[in-house]
Nucleic acid binder design. Structure first.
Lengths: 116, 116
DNA sequence: GAGCTATATCGAAGGTTGTCAATATCCCAT
DNA sequence: ATGGGATATTGACAACCTTCGATATAGCTC
């Protein structure tokens, strides 16, 4: 993960043919790789899965630390990466931070991987 | 990328519900993350794309170095990672090594990412 | 066999990532 | 205001990744 700002997924997938259709330009390869890097961590996959399975498809940060078994700063770090990559939205309500899946974000990445 | 042996994709995806269906067990999160890590590199995405777009969906290693603009050892390294992750097969014909996409491998990963 | 070519492996440098403890920030309640 | 709880940021460290040049291996051709 670089320090560069991540494109929201919807931008990454706005324009392009699927991966297997024609040779991917370097710029688009970079963008897609950045999105995939955000997903390519077991803790982040579990966070996505937990949020998606939560009531209202929304989860409080306070309920995410314990299930993944890592420290609070580490979980906060992973959540930030998922937000910056465009997979999560963050809503502050009082002291609590709530996270939701961005609708269609995972599907956009998936669509780029398939041929048909 | 760890030194640990990668599961072929078909094993990763053999058993499990989509990512967003229920909380992903740690073991499956690890496996899927390993597959995604193999994809999460711009050079490897371009290699996949070039091979997929080649005549017969097959490409010789000798034709892959120049388009990605990296050294021969580096390209060889990326090809190895894609083979070990189960996305490519490698066939030796004389001095040349030919690479093909494993049918369905990308689709298996994509299917785990979508909800529907 | 000798030499050439294609590919893989080795070893090292530099950058990136995941993790934590410590600390800062923000918001609510008293 | 003050205190307490929730979350984010900082700084540090170890592990890992990408890349290369140098070298090894394997197969073809003469």
């Amino acid at each position: 993960m670089s320090t560069q700002t991540l494109l929201p997924i919807t931008d990454v997938t706005a324009c392009c043919a699927p991966l297997t259709r024609e040779t991917l330009p370097a710029q688009q390869a970079d963008d897609l790789a950045r999105s995939l890097k955000a997903l390519a961590d077991p803790t982040r996959l579990r966070l996505i899965s937990i949020v998606a399975a939560s009531a209202g498809e929304e989860a409080c940060a306070c309920d995410l630390t314990e299930p993944v078994g890592l420290s609070q700063p580490t979980v906060s770090h992973h959540l930030k990466i998922l937000v910056e990559a465009g997979f999560f939205t963050r809503t502050q309500r009082g002291t609590w931070a709530y996270f939701r899946l961005v609708p269609g974000a995972l599907d956009s990445v998936a669509r780029l991987l398939v041929s048909a």
